[in-house]
Structures are given as structure tokens and as C-alpha cells.
């Protein structure tokens, strides 16, 4: 960490102390701490990750499609020093979110895309997608993303939407937002310029999603 950054951090620490003092004077220390921790909020309604959600039958996508979706999630966002998308049940979240926040047409597009990937894979390799080697899986998804035959531009568009939802699903989990990224629940003020190394994590806390 550079000198400039250290002094910025120190400055924020001092201002945070002053802030705590102000806040405690106004609210009382207990409430002030609770506010800054962001704890004490009920989140029973949120989508809860399930181990092997693809094995649970539901109204949208059959179990084969869910397994395929799980596999695609893991190819696009594999395990590295942070968990893979499937380990965070991003595929389960996608199934949930498609039903809650997307249109019938969008649901059908994804349904059709998964069927198409399955069909094309079986035709070209005589195997289901989930049993291919990682290299083969990446190649197929790259072809899809580049709209290379047999995939069309509309297939690419649907895949792009799926990828966007996948990335959204990953970085809005607690692990994704706070471990894969750097999360500031209460930043303590705004600093316009801090030192940054291109390999540092980006902020995982956004104003609007």
C-alpha cells in the first residue's frame, strides 16, 4: 500500500471515530453500532442458496436443463481463489429470478437456448454437454458467444443475457459481493482519488443494481 493510500485510510479512520462520537450522541451507542454493522435486519425472504438445487423439480426448466445450466455457470465463472458460480448456487438463483423478474418471452428464450445447446452438443460430439471436457465446453460456449455456425445472432443475444444474469447472480451473493469484491457497507465518506493497483479488487458495493 502506498503512502498516499495509508494517509487516506488513516484520515478515514479518524473521521470514522468522530462520526461514531456524533452518531452515538444522537442515537445512543447501541443503535449506532447496529446501524454501522448493518445487522439486525430480517432477510428471511431472500433467495437462499441450496446445495444441488438442480435436483429439485420446479415450474421452470426440467432437471436436465438445470444440470446443463449449472454446468454452464461453472464454465463461465469457474472456481478460482473464490468459489465457482455453481458452488454459490447461481444456477438456482437464475431459475428463481427468471420466474420472479423476467417475462414469459425471456423465459422461453432461455429454455430454447438450453435445448439448442444440448441438441447441438449431442449432434457434434455424441455426448451431452455436461460430460464433455472443460476444453470442449469452453469451445462450444465461445462458438455460441461468437454466433458461429450453427449458432445465430439471436442465440448469442440470449446467451449474453444469461451471462449478465449469471454475473449479477454471482456478485450479489454475500460471498461474491464481499469476498470476490471489496464491500463497503458504510464507506465513511467519499475520497475522490486513492491509489489502486490494477490487480486490486473492485468495489462490490453499488448504489443501484
Amino acid at each position: 500500500m502506498s503512502l498516499k493510500n495509508e494517509s487516506a485510510t488513516a484520515e478515514l479512520k479518524v473521521s470514522r471515530r468522530q462520526f461514531m462520537y456524533q452518531l452515538s450522541a444522537v442515537l445512543g451507542t447501541g443503535v449506532a453500532c447496529q446501524l454501522l454493522d448493518g445487522s439486525g435486519f430480517n432477510h428471511a425472504m431472500a433467495y437462499q442458496a441450496v446445495e444441488h438445487s438442480e435436483k429439485i423439480a420446479g415450474a421452470y426448466l426440467n432437471q436436465d436443463q438445470k444440470l446443463l445450466l449449472r454446468t454452464i455457470c461453472d464454465v463461465v465463472l469457474p472456481k478460482t481463489d473464490t468459489p465457482s458460480a455453481a458452488e454459490l448456487d447461481v444456477h438456482g438463483f437464475i431459475v428463481h429470478q427468471m420466474q420472479a423478474c423476467y417475462t414469459t418471452e425471456q423465459r422461453k428464450n432461455l429454455d430454447d437456448l438450453l435445448s439448442l445447446i444440448d441438441l447441438q452438443t449431442k449432434q457434434s460430439t455424441q455426448k451431452p454437454f455436461v460430460l464433455l471436457t472443460p476444453e470442449q465446453q469452453i469451445k462450444i460456449l465461445n462458438n455460441l458467444e461468437q454466433a458461429k455456425l450453427p449458432f445465430k445472432q439471436t442465440d448469442r443475444d440470449t446467451f449474453k443475457s444469461l451471462k449478465q444474469l449469471m454475473v449479477f447472480g454471482y456478485f450479489t451473493t454475500q460471498v461474491g459481493a464481499t469476498q470476490a469484491l471489496n464491500y463497503q457497507a458504510v464507506p465513511g465518506g467519499f475520497k475522490g482519488s486513492i491509489k489502486h493497483s490494477p490487480t486490486d479488487k473492485a468495489w462490490g458495493s453499488h448504489s443501484y443494481y
Partner: peptide
């Protein structure tokens, strides 16, 4: 207030 996106039913999106 004070919630992370993972604490909302649809990660801050509103039901269709």
C-alpha cells in the same frame, strides 16, 4: 436501509 443485495427476495429487483 443497510441491507446487502443478497438480503432481498430478488436481489433488489422487483417482482414482475
Amino acid at each position: 436501509e443497510g441491507k446487502g443485495p443478497w438480503q432481498f427476495a430478488n436481489r433488489t429487483k422487483v417482482d414482475n
